[in-house]
Design a protein around this nucleic acid. Sequence first.
DNA 1: GCATTAACCACAG
DNA 2: CTGTGGTTAATGC
Length: 226
Amino acid sequence: MIRPNCKFCKLKSPAAELLNDDELEELEQNCALVQFKKGEVIFREGTMATNIVYLREGMVKIHMKGPVGEKILRLNKAPVYLGLPTTFGDRVNHYSATAVTDAKICFISLETFKEFIFSNGNFAYEIIMDLCRMELSDSQRYTNMSQKQLPGRVAEILLCFSNSLFKSDTYELPLSITELADFISVSRESVSRQLSEFTHGGIIAHDKKNVTILRRDLLEKISANG
DNA sequence: GCATTAACCACAG
DNA sequence: CTGTGGTTAATGC
């Protein structure tokens, strides 16, 4: 664990940018910075939510056990708070968070965080904005994923990675094929085959986990048509 | 019926 | 864990 220095932290959340010096001092006294390695669990479904979890650097998957297997709910990249709904909504975590890359996490005292919400309206508003945006994009994705067929789902997730996560046509898949399957609710074989088909069709190029989108137009069409 | 889609199974690398 | 091939059940002309 590293002693955090919140006041001069360059990786503050947009909400924490709105805290005054006294509050930042308070935050600093009530937060711990922890380093996680790729694959390590940050918090686990079924355990008590005791702290506010802030992803400062890295990428994390949020996932839960379903009736048949694991389901990935979303992929978050820093900076973002993880699990606010499960921390405030219940005492027990309803889902898990696992580092997909090496990650740095600030664990913040729940009491301190609550104080900020009560005393600093701008801070609270920023948190609400974040939660709302998350809810909107989740709803959109769940709706799309449940109504699209296999090619549409794979196309959408590839575009989503490109557009929101990496801002590039070339990237390294942050998830394994199996995880991808758990994300878009199809079998791992289907994901594998679909990626091959896109490759043979000249729509993408991929070797191992490196993906390049060659025909964004076609991919968008496939995604849109479901 | 016949075609399409995607899951399930098995097995190789 | 990944990629492929065969099989099978469901759904839609």
